[in-house]
Simulated assay, not measured.
Amino acid sequence: MSTELVWFKSSYSNSGGGECVEVAHASCDSSHSIRRTVHVRDSKLGARSPRFTVPPDAWSAFLAYASFDV
């Protein structure tokens, strides 16, 4: 089983190199059906970017907060 993360850009990222966030999910089983951790990095730096890892429920809570329309 490969341990390499597959990164994807935020749907809010633009192609002009603006503010971009990339996310990767790590699975805990070989079928990749169960998400165990969420990894986040700055896409402008790619593999050199600092990153942080959170549990899926924390990421979901952040997304709910970030998308809250006042």
Rank of each mutant, 00 (worst) to 15 (best):
M1E: 13
M1Q: 15
M1S: 15
M1I: 09
M1R: 08
S2P: 15
S2D: 15
S2M: 06
T3W: 09
T3D: 13
T3Q: 08
T3G: 13
T3I: 12
E4A: 13
E4I: 14
E4R: 15
E4C: 08
E4Y: 12
E4M: 14
L5M: 12
L5C: 11
L5V: 05
L5Q: 06
V6C: 04
V6W: 05
V6D: 06
V6T: 14
V6Y: 10
V6F: 08
V6R: 13
W7N: 00
W7R: 00
F8G: 12
F8H: 14
K9W: 01
K9V: 03
K9M: 00
K9C: 00
S10P: 05
S10Y: 07
S11F: 05
S11W: 04
S13A: 11
S13T: 06
S13F: 01
S13G: 05
S13H: 00
S13L: 05
N14F: 04
N14R: 01
S15Q: 06
S15N: 15
S15W: 01
S15L: 08
G16Y: 13
G17L: 06
G17N: 12
G17H: 10
G18R: 07
G18D: 10
G18M: 07
E19T: 12
E19Y: 10
C20S: 09
C20I: 02
C20T: 04
V21T: 10
V21I: 14
E22D: 06
V23T: 08
V23W: 01
V23Y: 02
V23K: 02
V23R: 02
A24G: 03
A24K: 02
A24L: 04
A24M: 04
H25P: 02
H25K: 14
H25D: 09
H25F: 13
H25M: 13
H25C: 14
A26Y: 01
S27Y: 02
S27G: 15
S27V: 03
C28I: 12
C28E: 12
C28L: 08
C28H: 14
D29G: 10
D29A: 08
S30M: 07
S31G: 07
S31A: 15
S31T: 11
S31F: 03
S31R: 11
H32K: 08
H32L: 07
H32P: 01
S33F: 03
S33L: 00
S33M: 06
S33Q: 09
I34R: 10
I34D: 13
I34F: 08
I34E: 13
R35V: 12
R35Y: 05
